[in-house]
């Protein structure tokens, strides 16, 4: 029998180890697994590499992990959102490393990991500072940059609905990085607004359960 349901967020987060690479879904304030992040903050696990589009804002989400000093390194496309005070503080103090990645390259590096690819050539960033030191090639008459797959130990995902098989659907623009990150981690942990009693309509599944490790209901919506 397949049953990926886990009763509490604390239990769900237990597989996260010191120094893990953790992908966190979301964009801005939409689709962020706030419940799982809170549980990770309470767990006190540190030395984390966080892969996410942004680096938190205010006193919630990834900001809590930064405030607590649990983050050693951030890989993201846009760390400098209004109110990203904890990231800026840790960055300026030299307490957190930053790798800035163009947003589409970030998504595709994550997808490549989930799809079993070593990397890919992209015209994005060719000739810019973000391509320095990277292998390049002329393909179809254009300069292209070799970008490597980006793997994670853990992905923290926010879904709208889940079933016990781990199938997921998403609400509006809360989808963003969530399905692609679910593919790229060794263990994917999901908080869903609703965990269904029965199976989800197969045609409504956006992220198939094969990519999911556990699901926990967390009804709170931002």
């Amino acid at each position: 029998m397949i049953d990926k349901r886990v009763a509490t967020l604390a239990e769900a987060i237990a597989p996260v180890r010191e120094g893990a690479v953790v992908m966190i879904g979301g964009f801005g304030t939409s689709g962020i697994p706030f419940g799982l992040i809170d549980a990770l903050a309470k767990s006190g696990v540190g030395g984390l590499t966080i892969v996410s589009n942004n680096a938190g804002a205010g006193e919630e989400g990834i900001s809590i992990l930064l405030r607590n000093g649990q983050v050693a390194r951030v890989i993201c496309s846009y760390p400098r959102t209004p109110g990203s005070i904890w990231f800026e503080r840790r960055y300026e103090a030299g307490e957190v490393e930053l790798e800035v990645v163009p947003q589409g390259t970030l998504a595709e590096r994550i997808r490549a990991a989930g799809a079993g690819l070593g990397g890919f050539f992209t015209p994005t960033g060719y000739g810019t500072r973000l391509a320095e030191g990277k292998e390049t090639r002329q393909i179809d008459g254009r300069g292209q940059v070799l970008e490597m797959a980006l793997h994670a130990d853990i992905a923290l995902i926010r879904a709208e609905e889940a079933d016990r098989w781990g199938n997921l659907s998403f609400h509006a623009t809360a989808r963003n990085f969530n399905p692609v990150m679910a593919m790229a981690a060794k263990h994917t942990i999901v908080e869903a607004r609703h965990v269904l009693e029965g199976p989800m309509d197969p045609g409504a599944v956006v992220c198939p359960g094969i990519f999911v490790g556990s699901v926990t209901e967390y009804g709170v919506r931002p």
Binding site: S77, Y78, P79, R80, F87, E88, Y91, E92, L98, V100, V101, P102, Q103, G104, T105, T122, P123, T124, G125, Y126, T128, L130
Partner: peptide, 16 residues
């Protein structure tokens, strides 16, 4: 150089 760099989606848009 005081502020952390942030690129977002601009580099992907301009090449495509």
């Amino acid at each position: 150089e005081k502020h952390p760099p942030a690129v977002g989606g601009a580099m992907d848009l301009v090449v495509g």
